[in-house]
């Protein structure tokens, strides 16, 4: 089938305009809601989070706070931004990088008792890359330096 040049042009202009419109829609949508990808526990505490609808919270998993129920799927943990904390309950599979002390972003709702019921849990990792031995050495160095800082006090 051979399209007339004029028709082909109209179709291509249509596709071009549709793509630009799609890009613009995405930009506007991103500016409206997704600029705040997640809220911090402090914002949750202050009530700066959307009411009635779901939202995401982000922070670090408090070390020692991760507990598993007997069903093996339901997990409890605490998210902190180092000043405030939020209790989270989640039923499902955790991502491989989910670890205590590491970053996490959870999507869900706050229930009546103030518990955050997550429907999705994502791991947020940092931008550092190094072999395990280097990470271990760094950790040891940090522990030594903090202990010397703390002791004189």
């Amino acid at each position: 089938m051979k399209l007339k040049a004029r028709h082909k042009r109209f179709i291509l202009i249509g596709i071009g305009l549709a793509l630009i419109a799609l890009a613009a829609t995405l930009i506007l949508n991103a500016f409206r809601s997704n600029m705040v990808f997640f809220y911090t526990p402090t914002q949750v505490e202050k009530g700066e989070v959307p009411k009635d609808t779901g939202f995401r919270i982000g922070g670090l998993v408090v070390p020692g706070s991760l507990k598993r129920d007997d069903d093996g799927l339901t997990v409890h943990f605490v998210i902190t931004d180092t000043s405030k904390t939020v209790q989270v309950i989640y039923k499902g599979i955790l991502p491989d990088l989910f670890k205590e002390g590491k970053g996490v972003v959870a999507q869900g709702k706050v229930d009546a008792s103030g518990l955050f019921v997550a429907s999705e849990v994502l791991a947020k990792h940092d931008e550092n890359y190094m072999p395990p031995e280097a990470a271990e050495a760094l950790k040891r160095a940090r522990e030594n330096s903090t202990s010397t800082l703390v002791v004189p006090k």
Binding site: A30, L94, P95, L97, E120, L122, A123
Partner: peptide, 15 residues
């Protein structure tokens, strides 16, 4: 495998 999702609408991925 790392985050636990193929896609999210955050500012980096959207832009």
């Amino acid at each position: 495998p790392m985050w636990g999702t193929w896609w999210v609408w955050d500012a980096r991925l959207t832009s």
